[in-house]
Design a binder for these strands. Structure first.
Lengths: 355, 355
DNA sequence: TTGAAAGCGCTAACAA
DNA sequence: TTGTTAGCGCTTTCAA
């Protein structure tokens, strides 16, 4: 038989009082007799009373739910971010409604609409690659719902943003490669449209410039067709056939770097002695497991935590009627260098295994 | 200025009718004059009216939300499952509320409570390793809320379950190793408590038996201290020091296998010629990228889809007052063998890169 | 100290 | 064809 959720009414009836009294007793209202309060509290626990959050939401126009929208959940980076978000939200008593857009602008609009509609108290969103219009997000602001952009952000909206310091990360690692003795450094970059990809290019160029090295067009390749292992292999074969091939490769992400290392080894190069390989990484252990790789670690978990905390702060401010002042938080990357340049390990497993 | 969500009342007022009329017009009620229907529809679109799901939930005692509880989101496997769940849910017009337990029983109980409380229409859950009591799940059944267990399931609950065919997967791959010529096959297994780990052991033993090979105690190691790369390295060093070392290693997950391969190469073995390595894998490309690895692919995305579809079916049945008949769906694994045994690649990157 | 009543947004049975 | 009314579960103002 279907158990029924116990309500204030149930308690009230059994105690011969009104729901109002029960409600007040449950919330430690000042003017309530100790006797009834005690009775109510006891019966409530006995009956396992739990307030109905939906009724609360309807009344208060707030849901204790935050919405999260990301391009793809099957991504070490994004799943790590979400993990950080969920831990913070959970701690603060918020639930998380998650949507993925699969990089589709249309779906992003739809999901955002659903969330706004569901009266989420705030929204955390990482934009899809297709997104170039922001009305669906402006709507949140119009309705006074706080909004925090993370990772994939845009300039068009004056809201709080949390990003990784791509410029500085690229600068640091390129400088590191130069210090190590590389003077011909190739770049395998991401899509020209993406903001973080552009920042990385800038950091790369700045580091070269600082050390008096030229920015050579033929050393800059775009990872067309996916930021993948295969792309890394293809571009590496291509670039090593140049009359004057690079002695270092800086890539946009782990898989590309690993693809590059694979091909370089196949071609008989010693990595990193002959050709050094470095890459942005969302897995802190990447360079430990694959010593041939020097990586710039991007703190996903921290990004999730910080984004969620900023959002929760803003939600609270909104509820207290205070004005929100947008900030942009830039998280530092971490340079991960293996000291021993022992022979390359076998592989970069993604995460601890299941079971 | 805070925009206000437009309600039926707004439309009614502007049109000089009652909310009931508006409500009916919006839902294509039979008895409604074409004139008012048209007027209502027009004003509704103009004002961008969207029904308030919270009010609907309160009224109908259903939320169009499904709850998902998993141990850890930062896992290729689980994030893939979630992706499958979300795609199906989205298609069916459901939202997803996600919780992670971090393998804590206590947190699992808490999160389940919150979800039940939030009146989710159904629950998808993969149990934490600590979970041995099921009252928190029984509560869902008591309240008539459908429940589907996936991956980490238990026998104590008579509900629908979706699992991977671990027995058959292990059997198949061990037989494959035997066919390839290995006659001394080690097993690096998961926790003795986990049901899937036990099934894999059984499949392993059965394959050996079928081919007249002994099950040797010293060849069976438990991955204590985490199903990780490090564990794979440690156990491999250990097992290769046996007086009569194995010529094949079957592991419980990618990272362990990769750790094993790394160590074997370091020790000067040729993989897979001298020692073959195989492992359960949640990344379909693992054996493509690391040709030294033969893997048993576990279909995470499909698991998510199937689980979600079964849950949605049951939700519908519940709403139509029909009885739910629990089923157990066992998904086949896929043997991934690289034909060319060319030299091992460099690494197994986890997923397509970000950017 | 407690009750009565209104209202959050919506639907549906019953009247008109 | 449309209006009235009640109610989903809860909080809160106003009365008593």
């Amino acid at each position: 038989m279907k158990a029924h959720h116990v309500t204030l009414k149930d308690i009230a009836r059994q105690l011969g009082v009104t729901v109002a009294t029960v409600s007040r007793a449950l919330k430690d209202y000042p003017d309530i007799s100790p006797a009834t309060k005690k009775a109510v509290l006891e019966l409530a626990t006995q009956l396992k009373y739990r307030p109905n959050p939906i009724a609360l939401s309807l009344r208060a126009s707030r849901s204790n739910v935050i919405g999260v929208v990301i391009p793809e959940i099957v991504h070490h980076f994004f799943s790590t971010v979400i993990s950080g978000i969920m831990d913070v939200a959970d701690q603060a008593g918020y639930s998380v409604m998650l949507c993925q857009t699969n990089e589709s602008y249309q779906r992003e609009v739809r999901e955002a609409g659903t969330l706004l509609n569901s009266r989420v108290d705030g929204l955390l969103i990482s934009l899809s690659n297709e997104t170039e219009q922001y009305d669906h997000l402006q709507e949140f602001l119009d309705h006074g719902v706080p909004l925090v952009l993370f990772d994939k952000v845009c300039n068009e909206l004056d809201v709080t943003k949390v990003i990784v310091d791509d410029y500085e990360g690229a600068f640091t690692i390129v400088e590191h490669l130069i210090m190590r003795g590389s003077d011909k450094i190739a770049l395998m970059r991401g899509p020209t449209a993406a903001s973080n990809s552009r920042l990385r290019l800038a950091g790369y160029a700045a580091a070269l410039k600082k050390h008096g090295l030229p920015v050579r067009e033929e050393y800059i390749l775009e990872c067309a067709g996916g930021v993948t292992y295969e792309t890394g292999m293809r571009l590496t074969r291509q670039i090593m056939q140049l009359p004057d091939p690079p002695n270092a490769i800086f890539t946009v992400a782990d898989p590309v770097a690993i693809g590059a290392i694979t091909v370089l080894k196949q071609m008989g190069f010693h990595v990193p002695a002959d050709v050094a390989v470095a890459g942005f990484s969302d897995w802190e252990m990447a360079s430990v497991v694959e010593p041939a790789l020097t990586s710039v670690y991007q703190p996903g978990f921290e990004m999730g935590q910080v984004s969620a905390m900023l959002l929760l702060e803003q939600i609270e401010m909104t509820q207290n009627g205070r004005e929100i002042v947008p900030v942009t938080k830039t998280l530092p990357t971490k340079l991960m260098v293996r000291q021993s340049s022992a022979r390359g390990g076998a592989a970069v497993p993604d995460m601890p295994g299941r079971v």
